[in-house]
Simulated scan of single mutants.
Amino acid sequence: MAETTAIRAPRSLIAPGRYVQGRGVLAELGRYVAPIGSMPLILTDAVVKELTEATVTESFRRAGLPVRFEKFGGIPTAAEARRVADVAVERGCDVIVGLGGGTVIDTAKAAGDNAGIRWVSVPTVASTDAPTSALSVVYTEEGAFESYRFYARNPDLVLVDTQLVANAPVRFLVAGVGDALATWIEARAVQRASATTMAGGLATHAGIALARLSWDILWENAMPAVEAVRQNLVTPAVEAVVEANTLLSGLGFESGGLGAAHAVHDGLTAVPHTHHLVHGEKVNIGSITQLILEAAPTAEIRRFVEFTARLGLPTTLTEAGLGDADEEVLRAVVAAATAPEETIHNLPFPVSADDVLDALKAVEVLGRSVRAEAGLPEPQAPESLRTRVPTARMA
């Protein structure tokens, strides 16, 4: 009998068809959408529509495209994606434009897939790396993580107007940094484990390099970019961070892989205590948890905690709303984070629920210790988070 040779999983990298970034590029949206579809549906919320409607309408007029807006329901559920898909089919649309934040964009992708039409991402904030990917995060009506939904292709176009990003509340850019910093932390772990990435294969050298590039750019530019966006300015640092948060992190997480940081994020969504935090803020708690689980060098962990605390990201359970949570609540977080289908199992070592529980508890102790040593204010409970602003840059 002939011997069979095990076939090693292929390496894979996937990406959007086109990426466009710059100040004022929203005014050119119609020109970029026209080759993709002639009957677009623009999915957005009321706030973003008010900010962008005049620019988008004029852009589409110049490109000879009709303008059809549809209001986003607020939560990226499977039901909302089906509703939007039905609207697109009824109106004869051949492309969906997700205009807004990550939840709008994820819903536009899901609706486009349901309707069998193409989709375009137009993020108005740089708060997540969702815009470039061939997947959506699906939530329950209560706002808890439900599942990842994968697609056969990435968006045909991702267009980011950096002036819109600079005009948005600085918290969104900071959250995007939290999401993007996790990309390298997770990708290097997935590479060590030879685990499968979100692209359906082993990581390519390109995917890993993009994840690392995102990390390097953020450590160099995040502080000045945040300071600039607080004044609604578009500087080279802002352009660099928007690219790192959106394109590099997007390609890096999808073709480099996810690990514990995003699994812990998913776990945090399972309890209502954390619903005041946006995606990248919860991911930052997950990044610290992963570094503790990995037994990363103490100096590396403490430097990461200080850097992200100075940016304004949560680095303690207190800020996540779990400072006074009992064991049962924390175990609910851990149970969701360690579910069999979760990406925490991409780490290059087995992880038990007790391991994650202890690492989560250590986040609080570590975060308080680093803050005290760095002379930063003590962590505050959720009611004060919405007024949190970045602290002075590290020496």
Rank of each mutant, 00 (worst) to 15 (best):
I7S: 06
G17L: 09
Q21I: 01
A27I: 00
G37R: 04
P40L: 05
I42E: 11
L43N: 10
V48Y: 00
V48E: 09
T52K: 07
T52R: 03
R61F: 12
I75Y: 01
T77Y: 02
R82S: 04
A85K: 02
A88S: 04
A110F: 09
W119D: 09
T128W: 14
S133T: 10
T140G: 02
A144I: 01
S147F: 05
Y148K: 02
R153K: 15
R153P: 00
D156T: 07
L157N: 05
T162Y: 15
A168Q: 07
V170G: 04
I185N: 09
A187V: 10
A187K: 09
V190C: 07
A193P: 10
A193L: 15
A199P: 03
A211D: 13
A225T: 05
V238Y: 12
V238E: 10
V241Y: 14
F253P: 04
G257T: 11
G259Y: 05
G259M: 12
A261N: 12
H279Y: 09
I292Y: 01
T298L: 05
G312C: 00
P314H: 00
G321H: 07
E327G: 00
V333G: 12
A337Y: 13
A339Y: 11
I344K: 01
L347N: 08
D358P: 00
L360M: 11
L360N: 05
V363A: 13
G367D: 04
E373D: 10
R388V: 04
T391E: 05
T391K: 14
